[in-house]
Design a protein around this nucleic acid. Structure first.
Lengths: 243, 243
DNA sequence: CGCCAGGTTGATTTCGCTCAAGCAATGTGG
DNA sequence: CCACATTGCTTGAGCGAAATCAACCTGGCG
């Protein structure tokens, strides 16, 4: 499937000013950036490749430079759930690295990606040498934690229909396009099975509910594109979720 | 219900060597402990008191010295879920403090507690002055995050019966007692309603399932004590959860 | 061309929730 | 010390949302 050990494909340092400023790494000093760039290893991954597997020891931190990665948990009997999607600028594996645990999830490339790897000791070195980096990570982790709790709460309390609408609206951030005539649409890089895995549902149910929402005239479906016809009513339904 | 502003009840410094070593605070130097102790405010809370409410700005960090506190999320339409329990040595409100957010949950005392409060600026001061403290928090937060994700996964994937069994086994850590004749039992400080809120269920359902498990001969119930008769079979069921 | 993974659709089942009534334990005031 | 309210737990009946099972369709690809 893929090489086990990533090797640098030598297209230059990953951490230039452009990428850095959007991530926690903008706390680094020039000297530290130098250390970072000397130790980072970058390569491309094809769709379908596995970056790391649930249970693997956590060797370091992965930074998504481009592409799309799904982080998925799978239990003994095949139940699987997508815990999060990682886009450009996101990091992968920072949680197990910081917690000094093994990976609790599997990261699989959805859209061809380029990913930079920083090994654990370099990361720790930088964390020790630059407390601001640590604070940034702390803040970031605490925020992500809050969002995870929020999602847990929703899965427990909301109907499937509401969860799907919520997901669609979330995905608009990354995949929404507004056409020249103002129509809003969503071109999803994900299989519907994956959508289902993101909200704790079965693919059949997702299919049914999407059709239902379509029949209500709120969206329109063609292939893996969702045209949002009544964004307002979607949002309404989300807020009125008495259901 | 309670005083709004906690006041020190002057029974001496909270952070003595005994308590400190079990928490992230053992990274502090003597000078820092001095700062800590000058700024900490401790008081007791009766069962039922609210320590902070969902939506409140996060003023600082609370440390549970003794007693039991439930951290609970409540949504617009009354749905509520217990996010975690805090025992002796646990801290409350560190997540919103670090993420610089408001509280996303309400902390309510279940068993009379003594709680120490450190305001945000003192905490931040200590975090800056002692990077090791930051690393400890980072590690702690990352671990808690992992556990939250695990729980989310379970709520989505496991049957109610399996979730209850899982919860019972978790609670054994804190509330399990082994009698002289070797019988294992669980003396719960929680109402059934609270158990339900910990696993995203209704109290009626919890009652039914517990009765079912009892009828299967795995446990026995009397009041709020659960006698574990067949620990082995409980664990089996957890692992075989095909259901 | 045939295969196959993924998506749809329908029929059926099941799990857990809602609603509602009854009950035991605890507390409260007369 | 006893009627009474209150609170939390149990139990039952019925319902509904979503899962399961199963058949069929579709489009892409060797």
């Amino acid at each position: 499937m893929n090489d086990e050990r990533p090797e640098n494909d030598a297209t230059g340092p990953c951490l230039d000013a452009r990428h850095r400023t959007k991530t926690e790494w903008d706390a680094l000093t020039p000297a530290e950036i130098e250390i970072f760039n000397r130790n980072v290893v970058c390569r491309t991954y094809d769709a379908g490749s596995i970056i790391f597997m649930q249970g693997d020891p956590c060797k370091g931190l992965y930074l998504v430079e481009r592409g799309l990665v799904a982080v998925r948990k799978i239990d003994e009997m095949g139940q699987s759930a997508i815990v999060r999607l990682a886009h450009q600028g996101d990091s992968l594996g920072y949680r197990p690295l910081l917690a000094k645990e093994n990976h609790r999830a599997t990261a699989k490339v959805i859209k061809d990606a380029r990913i930079c790897f920083v090994n654990a000791s370099t990361t720790r070195l930088l964390l020790v040498s630059n407390p601001r980096l640590g604070m940034k990570f702390l803040e970031h982790t605490a925020q992500a934690f809050g969002e995870a709790e929020e999602r847990m709460f929703q899965i427990a309390a909301l109907s499937l229909r509401t969860r799907i609408i919520h997901l669609l609206i979330l995905l608009l951030d990354h995949y929404g396009k507004t056409a020249s005539d103002g129509t809003l649409s969503l071109d999803l890089p994900l299989a519907w099975r994956d959508l289902a895995d993101m909200i704790g549902a079965r693919p059949e149910s997702v299919s049914r509910i999407l059709r239902e929402i379509k029949d209500d005239g709120l969206i329109n479906l063609s292939g893996s594109t969702v045209r949002i016809d009544r964004f307002d009513r979607l949002v309404d339904e989300l807020h009125n979720n008495l259901n």
